[in-house]
Simulated scan of single mutants.
Amino acid sequence: MAGRRRWSTDEILDTATELLSTSDAESFSVRKLAAALGTDSSSLYRHFRDKTELLRAIADRILLAAMDGYCPEGDWKQRITAVALRLRDAFGRQPQLAAIWGRYASSGTGSRLVMEEVLQALRTSGLPDEEIPARYHRIAILLASLIASEAGISTITPQEYEQGMELFRVAVLGADPERFPALAHFARDVRPLGADRRAAFEEIIAAHLDYVETATP
């Protein structure tokens, strides 16, 4: 009788990523992954201790892909911006995985590459060494939040998008000018959250890095 096939770590992660492309971390389970591979959960636990470790490995693959071929160019702000845009684009291609990165911090090679480059860039900014870890932490939180927020919008269906736009128009254009005078005044210029996301992303990153620059001696 033929033995059960042994799946490699990469094959397991490939299948897990495919499953997560149509679901989320909450509904994902090792049991579902095992069923998709035609095996049992115990065989997967030889590769990953639990679901959280598996999700962290999946998130790290996105970080690895984002940093593939990266070469530092420009000043420290340009380098951090380039990394930020690479992460945005990488998770933009697999938006269901963006929330996983924000929730399940990775400790793999991809995570180390991102951390190393941001820390190296900050070291060239003129900041004292004792301030750099805290500045890095704020940048990481900002990136994870922006990317997860954008990914959440990109996964909605066309029907959900149209429904949201209609609700937005009702909330803004239908605002009572006596109760909401500022909203009524700017109603025709206020834009929904889904509009012009890339420009907003770059502007927010630039503003934060400008703020960091003010702290340099």
Rank of each mutant, 00 (worst) to 15 (best):
A66K: 04
A175N: 05
A175L: 02
Y211K: 13
Q163G: 07
A98F: 06
R4I: 05
D176A: 07
R79A: 11
F168R: 12
F201W: 08
T81R: 14
A98Y: 10
A206R: 11
A35K: 08
L127H: 08
L143F: 07
R191G: 00
D68W: 05
A195L: 11
R197G: 03
T216M: 07
A59G: 12
W7Q: 09
R86I: 07
G174R: 06
I156K: 10
F201N: 06
S149W: 04
A144P: 01
P128N: 06
G174Y: 11
W101K: 09
R4P: 00
V170S: 04
Y161P: 00
R46K: 14
A187I: 01
L13Q: 02
P72W: 06
I147D: 06
F28Y: 04
I139V: 15
F48D: 04
R138L: 15
L209N: 00
P128I: 02
A25Y: 09
T214W: 03
S106R: 05
M67I: 04
R135P: 00
L87D: 07
I204S: 07
A90P: 01
R86W: 03
I205Y: 00
D89Q: 13
G108Y: 04
R191I: 01
I132R: 15
A206W: 01
E203G: 10
M1P: 03
S111T: 12
R31C: 00
E213R: 12
R56E: 14
G69N: 03
L13I: 13
L193M: 11
I141K: 02
R123S: 14
T17Y: 02
A148R: 05
T216D: 01
M67Y: 08
A206P: 00
A206C: 02
